[in-house]
Amino acid sequence: MPTEVQPVKSLYVENSIPAFSREEPFSNLLMDLQTKGWSVQDDFFSTDFTQALMDEVENIHIAYMQQAGVGRKQDHQVVLDTRRDYIQWIDPDKPIKKDFLKMMEDLRVALNRRLFLGLFDYEAHFARYETGAFYEKHIDAFKGESNRILSTVLYLNEGWQEGEGGELVIYDENDPTIEIGRFYPKKGRLAVFLSECFYHEVVVANRTRHSIAGWFRINNTTSMTLDPDQ
């Protein structure tokens, strides 16, 4: 009996998918950051570009992801009472990842031109929150102690429904006990906020939740200390 041949999924070809569907994709984001320090933009990338990123993260086997922790380099440690997601850092080793990093580089240039932030580079990882995973309220950078300036989160989930948890909660810059926004991890939604100003958390997810978390950074390298990445 002949073996059934499964159809081969078409592969993403670099630069074959337009990244944006709007003529000025950064304008609303830049205005929000200038006026309030945070922004949430739906459908930031084109539908096809977002889908290509979704395909990429969904096809990562859990064995090739690492348990996320807190701290950087020698200070890094896994604290399951604080966060329970798995991550894989994004390197430009595949076309869709290369193009995503290029688009975020274009955004870095636009941010520096408009807001004079002196951003030096961008780092990002895929994140997977399995059922029951969460990330407690935290801040991405303490004033004067980090090179992370802007945090970004791009959501890569199809048909997220109310009651499935996994929301991003952002708290008031001046009073971190006050919630100013709660956002479902909807497909194509991008959140950006000042890393040292806004406490935030990820509510317990009731289904697998994917995203790309990233940070625009300044360069803190000095003659005495090398600025670490990741």
Rank of each mutant, 00 (worst) to 15 (best):
M224W: 08
S211C: 10
R113G: 13
E23T: 06
E123S: 07
N174T: 02
R148F: 06
N147G: 07
L101H: 00
E58M: 10
S223C: 00
R108F: 10
Q88N: 07
E136I: 02
V8A: 02
P18E: 01
H61G: 13
L111D: 08
R113D: 15
L154V: 15
H125I: 00
I212A: 02
M31W: 00
H125Q: 14
G188F: 11
V192T: 15
R72Y: 03
P95E: 00
H200T: 13
K143L: 04
E179L: 06
E158H: 14
V40A: 14
R113W: 03
R128P: 11
I62C: 00
D32Y: 06
T82H: 07
R108G: 10
L111K: 08
I149W: 09
T222A: 12
L33S: 04
S10G: 02
A127E: 05
E56W: 10
P18G: 08
D81E: 15
L115D: 01
Y64E: 13
F49K: 01
F126A: 04
R217W: 04
N174G: 06
N157E: 08
E173F: 10
D172K: 07
L226D: 09
P176Q: 08
E196W: 03
T47I: 13
F45M: 08
A52G: 08
L226N: 07
E162P: 03
P95R: 01
F193H: 12
I90V: 07
C197H: 13
R108L: 05
V153N: 04
F20H: 14
P2E: 00
